[in-house]
Deep mutational scan, measured.
Amino acid sequence: MGFKLLSKLLVYLTASIMAIASPLAFSVDSSGEYPTVSEIPVGEVRLYQIADGVWSHIATQSFDGAVYPSNGLIVRDGDELLLIDTAWGAKNTAALLAEIEKQIGLPVTRAVSTHFHDDRVGGVDVLRAAGVATYASPSTRRLAEVEGNEIPTHSLEGLSSSGDAVRFGPVELFYPGAAHSTDNLIVYVPSASVLYGGCAIYELSRTSAGNVADADLAEWPTSIERIQQHYPEAQFVIPGHGLPGGLDLLKHTTNVVKAHTNRSVVE
Results as ranks from 00 to 15, higher is better:
residue 225 E to F: 15
residue 38 S to K: 14
residue 66 A to P: 13
residue 199 C to W: 02
residue 33 E to W: 11
residue 198 G to P: 00
residue 31 S to G: 11
residue 264 S to P: 15
residue 131 G to P: 04
residue 265 V to G: 14
residue 192 A to W: 06
residue 262 N to C: 10
residue 90 A to P: 10
residue 266 V to Y: 05
residue 180 H to F: 00
residue 203 E to G: 09
residue 106 L to C: 06
residue 215 A to V: 06
residue 60 T to W: 08
residue 41 P to M: 12
residue 101 E to T: 08
residue 143 L to N: 11
residue 136 A to P: 03
residue 5 L to E: 08
residue 34 Y to G: 11
residue 56 S to I: 04
residue 206 R to T: 07
residue 175 Y to C: 03
residue 182 T to I: 06
residue 210 G to Q: 06
residue 140 T to F: 03
residue 52 D to T: 09
residue 30 S to Y: 15
residue 90 A to D: 09
residue 240 G to C: 00
residue 177 G to I: 01
residue 111 A to H: 07
residue 231 Y to F: 15
residue 221 P to L: 13
residue 77 D to Y: 13
residue 196 Y to F: 06
residue 83 L to V: 13
residue 19 A to D: 15
residue 174 F to A: 03
residue 70 S to C: 04
residue 159 L to E: 02
residue 163 G to P: 04
residue 102 K to C: 14
residue 55 W to K: 00
residue 172 E to F: 06
residue 187 V to K: 00
residue 96 L to Q: 03
residue 66 A to R: 13
residue 167 R to E: 06
residue 66 A to M: 15
residue 46 R to C: 08
residue 88 W to P: 00
residue 178 A to G: 10
residue 209 A to W: 10
residue 16 S to A: 07
residue 20 I to T: 12
residue 253 T to P: 01
residue 20 I to D: 07
residue 169 G to M: 02
residue 27 S to W: 09
residue 54 V to C: 05
residue 169 G to H: 04
residue 91 K to D: 15
residue 51 A to T: 08
residue 90 A to E: 12
residue 75 V to N: 02
residue 159 L to F: 06
residue 225 E to C: 05
residue 237 V to C: 05
residue 264 S to E: 09
residue 234 A to N: 03
residue 226 R to M: 07
residue 159 L to S: 02
residue 108 V to N: 00
residue 127 L to P: 03
residue 16 S to M: 04
residue 89 G to E: 01
residue 195 L to P: 03
residue 139 S to F: 02
residue 14 T to R: 06
residue 22 S to G: 10
residue 140 T to W: 02
residue 12 Y to M: 05
residue 138 P to G: 14
residue 128 R to E: 08
residue 218 A to E: 11
residue 45 V to I: 15
residue 87 A to Y: 00
residue 116 F to S: 11
residue 186 I to M: 14
residue 181 S to D: 01
residue 84 I to K: 02
residue 154 H to P: 04
residue 218 A to G: 11
residue 89 G to Q: 03
residue 205 S to N: 05
residue 11 V to S: 10
residue 140 T to K: 04
residue 258 K to A: 10
residue 185 L to S: 03
residue 135 Y to K: 01
residue 28 V to W: 13
residue 145 E to K: 12
residue 143 L to E: 10
residue 210 G to M: 06
residue 57 H to I: 02
residue 231 Y to H: 04
residue 234 A to P: 15
residue 154 H to F: 15
residue 157 E to N: 15
residue 91 K to G: 13
residue 53 G to M: 10
residue 42 V to N: 15
residue 186 I to Y: 03
residue 264 S to C: 05
residue 66 A to F: 08
residue 40 I to D: 10
residue 251 K to R: 11
residue 53 G to H: 10
residue 210 G to F: 03
residue 25 A to F: 07
residue 76 R to D: 10
residue 182 T to W: 14
residue 22 S to A: 13
residue 9 L to A: 07
residue 120 R to D: 14
residue 56 S to D: 13
residue 138 P to T: 06
residue 39 E to C: 13
residue 197 G to D: 02
residue 99 E to W: 11
residue 143 L to I: 11
residue 132 V to L: 07
residue 45 V to N: 15
residue 163 G to Y: 10
residue 213 A to R: 10
residue 227 I to P: 01
residue 11 V to E: 04
residue 176 P to Y: 00
residue 102 K to D: 12
residue 256 V to F: 04
residue 249 L to G: 01
residue 8 K to S: 13
residue 185 L to C: 02
residue 13 L to N: 14
residue 30 S to L: 12
residue 33 E to P: 11
residue 87 A to F: 00
residue 18 M to N: 12
residue 120 R to Q: 03
residue 198 G to T: 04
residue 225 E to K: 06
residue 84 I to N: 01
residue 133 A to K: 15
residue 192 A to R: 09
residue 30 S to W: 13
residue 103 Q to L: 15
residue 183 D to V: 01
residue 28 V to G: 09
residue 182 T to C: 05
residue 189 V to Q: 03
residue 210 G to A: 13
residue 106 L to P: 04
residue 39 E to Y: 11
residue 215 A to S: 12
residue 175 Y to P: 02
residue 227 I to N: 04
residue 230 H to Y: 07
residue 85 D to R: 00
residue 195 L to Q: 00
residue 178 A to L: 11
residue 203 E to S: 06
residue 266 V to I: 04
residue 121 V to F: 02
residue 70 S to Q: 04
residue 108 V to T: 14
residue 84 I to W: 00
residue 94 A to E: 12
residue 135 Y to I: 03
residue 244 P to Y: 11
residue 111 A to S: 14
